[in-house]
Computed example of a mutant assay.
Amino acid sequence: MTEAERSTMVVRLDQGPVEYRLEQRGGPVVVVLHGGHMRASLVLGEEVFAESGYTVLAPSRPGYGRTPLSTGTSVSGFADVTRALCEHLGIAKVAAVVGISGGGPTAATMAARHPDLVERLILQSAVGWLAWPDRSTRIGAHVVFAAATEQATWGAMRGLMRLAPETCLRLLLRDLSTLPVRDVVAALRAQDRATLVALFSRMRSGSGFINDLQPAPDVTTEVGQPTLVIATRKDGAVPFAHAQSLAAVIAHAELVESQADSHFIWFGHDWPTIAETIRTFLTTDPPQPLQSVPQT
């Protein structure tokens, strides 16, 4: 098993099977909801929590990995499934739920629906409730990431990654930055380049990515927890306007602007400073959250 992929478990809850990874470190629990093409066994952006001794719980969202689409298909449904997973694991408090990219709506919805469980919300390069993605991207996604084609799409990517990793990185990062892709790739450190090669070589979309394109009820006005919204203006996948909108509407939100060159804010030169902001945020006593919103 590589550093980019770790072991997971599957539990059958009343709502259906859920794949998850639980890394116990003795500290408070952080729930990480990764974005598109990711599953529980893949690791990205978790070092700040691991290095601070936090226990990380990372479930595979519906349609990814070994969590079937039928388990909490909707954003609100899987927010409730994640609550049930916490109960199954004996987790009574979550220091923060972290929503990365396409996992943003589920993280925010979990915070809104379960304020007695979730103390804080962290959104990183997160999709919000503005229109997303644009029409051409949506059409393209239904072609290359459909159930009948996504395996072949990622198989071709893995083959190209073995034969011409530089070309493949440019191809995959092209839509993740507003900057010229050659400049983005050239600026990557060797370690970050290796991380991306390993990550892209193991990504799959399953039926999850197409499911992510379905609209979800906007809960931003219902989030009462302290919220940290982190994004870069150079993100070509999720426009910075999503972060601005989330920070403007969520009651106790702070917007942190990354200087990263792409959607992958963890590779920006200012990430150590942002990581310190996250650590401070996690150790600041949160105010009492709003009362639970009735579930439907």
Score class of each variant (00 low, 15 high):
Ala126Val: 07
Leu22Gly: 12
Leu169Gln: 06
Gly63Arg: 13
Gly65Asn: 07
Val32Glu: 11
Gln244Met: 13
Thr283Val: 01
Pro239His: 04
Ala107Ile: 03
His142Tyr: 13
Ala111Val: 05
Val48Gly: 04
Gly140Pro: 07
Leu117Ala: 08
Ala190Thr: 12
Ser7Gly: 14
Phe200His: 13
His263Met: 08
Gly63Ser: 10
Ala190Val: 11
Gly65Cys: 01
Thr296Arg: 14
Gly63Gln: 09
Arg158Asp: 02
Pro105Phe: 03
Gly63Glu: 06
Pro239Ser: 11
Arg12Cys: 13
Ile278Lys: 08
Ser292Ile: 07
Val30Asp: 03
Thr106Ala: 09
Leu89Gly: 01
Pro289Trp: 08
Asp270Glu: 02
Thr277Leu: 13
Gln259Thr: 14
Ala253Thr: 00
Pro286Arg: 13
Leu171Pro: 02
Val97Tyr: 06
Gly206Lys: 06
His37Tyr: 06
Cys168Asn: 10
Val229Leu: 07
Leu160Glu: 05
Phe264His: 09
Glu51Arg: 15
Arg279Asn: 13
Gly104Trp: 03
Val229Cys: 11
Pro59Lys: 15
Asp212Arg: 15
Asp134Val: 12
Gly208His: 06
Arg6Ile: 08
Pro59Gly: 07
Pro217Ser: 15
Ile265Lys: 03
Ala112Phe: 07
Ala156Trp: 05
Pro215Ser: 09
Gly35Leu: 09
His142Gly: 15
Gly63Thr: 11
Arg113Met: 14
Ala187Val: 04
Trp132Val: 07
Val81Leu: 03
Gly99Phe: 00
Arg170Ile: 05
Ala107Leu: 00
Pro62Val: 12
Glu46Arg: 09
Gly104Tyr: 08
Arg12Lys: 15
Leu169Thr: 01
Pro133Asn: 10
Ala253Ser: 02
Ala108Gly: 03
Ile122His: 06
Gly155Val: 03
Gly90Val: 04
Thr280Ala: 10
Arg233His: 11
Gly208Cys: 08
Leu172Trp: 03
Phe78Arg: 07
Leu85Ile: 02
Arg66Val: 01
Gly128His: 03
Ala260Asn: 04
Gly26Asn: 06
Ala96Ile: 09
Val144Arg: 15
Arg21Thr: 05
Thr283Arg: 14
Ala111Gln: 09
Leu173Val: 02
Pro115Arg: 10
Leu179Val: 00
Leu282Arg: 06
Asp270Cys: 08
Ser7Gln: 15
Arg162Trp: 01
Ala96Asn: 03
Cys86Arg: 08
Lys93Gly: 12
Leu57Met: 07
Arg170Thr: 07
Ala248Cys: 08
His263Leu: 01
Glu254Ile: 00
Val197Gly: 12
Ala187Asp: 12
Gln124Trp: 05
Ala251Ile: 06
Ile91Pro: 14
Met161Trp: 05
Ser74Gln: 13
Leu176Glu: 00
Tyr54Ser: 11
Val10Ile: 13
Trp154Val: 02
His263Pro: 04
Arg174His: 12
Phe209Gln: 11
Gly26Ser: 13
Val197Glu: 13
Arg158Thr: 02
Ile230Val: 14
Gln244Leu: 12
Gly77Ala: 04
His269Asn: 07
Glu47Pro: 01
Ser262Thr: 06
Leu199Ile: 13
His242Ile: 11
Pro215Val: 08
Leu121Asp: 02
Ile278Arg: 14
Thr106Val: 14
Asp218Trp: 06
Ala231Phe: 03
Leu117Asn: 09
Val75Tyr: 07
Gln124Pro: 00
Arg61Tyr: 09
Ser76Cys: 04
Pro165Asn: 03
Pro286Thr: 09
Val43Gln: 10
Gly159His: 01
Asp134Thr: 12
Leu163Ile: 10
